[in-house]
Simulated scan of single mutants.
Amino acid sequence: MLELEHGFRVVDVHTRLDPDEEAVAVRGRQVSPERLEREMHQAGVERAAASPGRTPRGEGYLRANNAVARLSIDRPIIAFARLGGPRSVKRVVGPLVNAVSRPRSHHTTAGDVEQYAYDDRYHGFTLDPAHDGLPTEPVLDELAATDDPVVVHGGEQYPPSAVAETLLDRGFPVVLSSFGGYPLNEDLMRSALDLLGEYDDLYLDTAYVPDRDVLEKGLLEHPDRILFGSGAPSVHPNVGVMEILTLDVPEDAMRRAFTKNPARVVPGLLPDL
């Protein structure tokens, strides 16, 4: 695939780095770290944040997080640690919101978050509550103490309203992936856009959002809150970049999404001095 020429400095807040062949086979398109780096270069993406893909329920993410941190060394990739917890989103968004769930050995603890935060290999965190469970209150408190960005996978099982109820106004920046509407739920995406007017610590990334109207509305009405995310390797970074380049929005709005906003929320995406 030919290299895109667009004149923007592009950084990416949403990629996945699978540490082994078994994980790649389970999660989709097989992309090695070398190929991910090559595809980033083809798309003109200078730096990207990467976290592990899903592991089987009950396995935890310590090994996968360490693998992603190791594989990001000497590459234009920064590692995000993926976290899991004991609380089911069916409980936290329903009448059992106050139910107590007992953490197990594979669940993230507040001490784990503190260690990740002090380890200069990690630049943020990733949550997928519908698959991995929601962390405990002490873990969320520790995330607030770190003030590091947290990329959150939402969707029909964990809609933007649930994100607002459980994670927003907690003291850390939340980047809601895919406008909170994966897969292709425009109503959820628009409800996430509405939340931007209520929460200053909420941002949306563009991964898997092919709807031009939704993307344009976000970039025009909230130009400082939209961050470019490609969703690679499930989507080639070229596709994600082109979706932004073909929108009917000012060049400055594109530059904010590609460069200024991601680097403000995720300082690790800034260029090396």
Rank of each mutant, 00 (worst) to 15 (best):
R27S: 08
H41Y: 12
A145N: 13
D169I: 02
T166A: 13
T126R: 14
M242Q: 14
Q157G: 06
L273Q: 12
P159Q: 04
D74T: 00
D201V: 02
V45A: 07
R35Y: 03
G133P: 00
E186S: 05
L184D: 14
N66Q: 15
Y118C: 10
V249N: 08
R47P: 05
Y118H: 15
R38I: 00
L134Q: 02
H106V: 04
D74G: 06
T108N: 04
A164N: 03
A23C: 05
T259C: 14
R190N: 10
L140N: 07
M189G: 07
L176V: 01
S72V: 00
A130Y: 09
D20L: 05
D147I: 02
E3K: 14
V239P: 00
R87E: 11
A25W: 07
Y182F: 14
E59L: 13
K217E: 15
V100N: 08
M40I: 02
G58R: 02
D148E: 13
V151R: 13
G171W: 09
A49S: 08
L17A: 01
D201H: 06
D272V: 10
G171N: 06
R104D: 11
D169K: 10
V92L: 09
D213Q: 12
A110Y: 02
D128H: 13
F179V: 03
S72C: 12
G180V: 00
A144D: 08
E3C: 09
V93D: 14
T108S: 07
G171I: 07
L245I: 05
A43Q: 05
A263P: 00
V89S: 02
R47K: 15
V97L: 10
Q42M: 11
E243K: 08
R35I: 08
K260F: 14
D148H: 13
N185S: 08
V26K: 11
V45L: 06
N66L: 15
L270N: 11
P95F: 13
P262Y: 08
I73L: 10
V11I: 05
K217S: 14
V209W: 07
V92Y: 05
E3G: 12
Y208F: 15
D248K: 07
V26D: 13
D272K: 09
N261R: 03
A99V: 07
E251G: 09
D194R: 10
Y116P: 00
D132I: 02
R190L: 11
P160D: 08
L193M: 01
F125E: 04
T15Q: 06
V163T: 09
V11L: 10
K260S: 15
H14V: 01
L193R: 00
N185Q: 08
A25N: 09
A69D: 01
V93T: 14
P135A: 06
R38V: 01
G218N: 06
L247I: 00
V139K: 04
P250T: 02
D201A: 06
R256Y: 05
D187R: 13
V239H: 09
A162S: 11
L227I: 01
D119F: 01
R29D: 10
P262A: 03
D201G: 06
G58K: 03
S178H: 15
L273F: 11
G84E: 14
P173A: 11
G231A: 04
L176N: 05
T126H: 13
E221A: 11
S88I: 00
D169E: 15
G94S: 11
F125Q: 02
N238P: 00
N65V: 02
A67F: 03
S101D: 15
Y182G: 02
R255I: 00
D20M: 01
E216L: 08
